[in-house]
Computed example of a mutant assay.
Amino acid sequence: MTESAPAAITPRGLELGGSAPDDFEPVAMARATLRKARIAALATLDPTSGFPLATLTNIATDVDGSPLFLASKLSLHTRNIEADPRISVLVSSLGRGDPLANSARLSVVGRAEHCTDTNAKRRFLARHPKAKLYADFPDFSLFRLSVLGLHPNGGFARAGAIAVDEVLLDLKGCEALIAAEDGAVAHMNDDHAEALELYATKLLGLPEGRWKATGLDPEGLDLVYGDENGRLVFPERVTDPARLRQVLVMLAQQARGQI
């Protein structure tokens, strides 16, 4: 007798009935949904009533995949965070038809922390360039979600139990790549716009346009064009600038071969 798949587990640890089908890959879905998300529902706790408040926020990811968001202390959700940093965000990749049946979504729970890392801020603003108009206002702060739990859902009967370290990246040994990220992204945008468009259109099947890179990490390159976005997953883990260059050249050659 073969063992059945374990029941899905929420971030609280509460077991849910049933099991996901064998073709559902919750870790891959969670990684893709989180990296491609540009907006999220943000849930905070009202310190007086204890009731949750759901609002909408722009979102990006840090190098390891941790969610980043910008918030003003004039907003109610920021006041809630300052009183109780426990929050959750819901990100989704909407499909056609019934969104409950056809959309991938990921709930992420943890604690909101003020983030002063300059590269994290660059990643956020590259994802949301209009935020440059107000990001440096004194009432705005960048927050990073210190992730404690994840709950992926790919539609009806498609939920899975995953651990945080299965989704967030271990950056040990990637220091050189992280240090080179800003320059590498700028170089791709300034000198290799054609390659970026080829990645998007030929490898990812996305519309033609002036695609730009917003960030990179050991597992992939994030791309945006207007309201469109894409995630180019590398064929292998990349840990240094030299190997990054080789992988990007190889992928560009692969894309050109499809013209």
Rank of each mutant, 00 (worst) to 15 (best):
S4K: 13
A8F: 02
T10Q: 12
G17T: 10
A20N: 03
P21Q: 13
V27M: 10
M29V: 03
R31I: 12
K36F: 00
R38V: 00
A41R: 05
A41D: 06
L42D: 09
A43Y: 07
P47H: 12
T48E: 15
T48N: 13
T48L: 14
S49C: 06
L53G: 09
T57S: 15
I59C: 07
I59P: 00
V63A: 13
G65Q: 05
F69N: 00
F69R: 06
S72D: 10
S72G: 11
S72Y: 11
P85V: 01
I87C: 11
S92F: 04
L94G: 00
G95L: 01
G95P: 07
R96E: 15
P99S: 08
A101T: 07
A101H: 02
S103P: 06
L106W: 10
G110C: 14
R111H: 11
R111Y: 06
A112R: 08
D117Q: 10
R122M: 13
P129N: 04
K130S: 15
P138A: 12
F140Y: 14
S141D: 15
L142E: 06
F143M: 10
F143T: 04
V147E: 11
V147Y: 11
L150F: 11
H151W: 11
P152F: 02
F156R: 10
A161K: 15
V164T: 15
K172I: 08
E175K: 10
E175N: 09
D182P: 00
G183V: 07
A195S: 15
L198K: 12
T201K: 12
L204C: 02
G205H: 02
P207F: 04
R210M: 05
K212F: 00
E219Q: 12
E219V: 05
G220T: 12
G226W: 10
R231A: 02
L232V: 00
F234Q: 05
F234N: 00
P235Y: 03
E236M: 14
D240Y: 01
Q246V: 07
V247L: 08
L248I: 07
L251M: 15
A252W: 07
I259H: 09
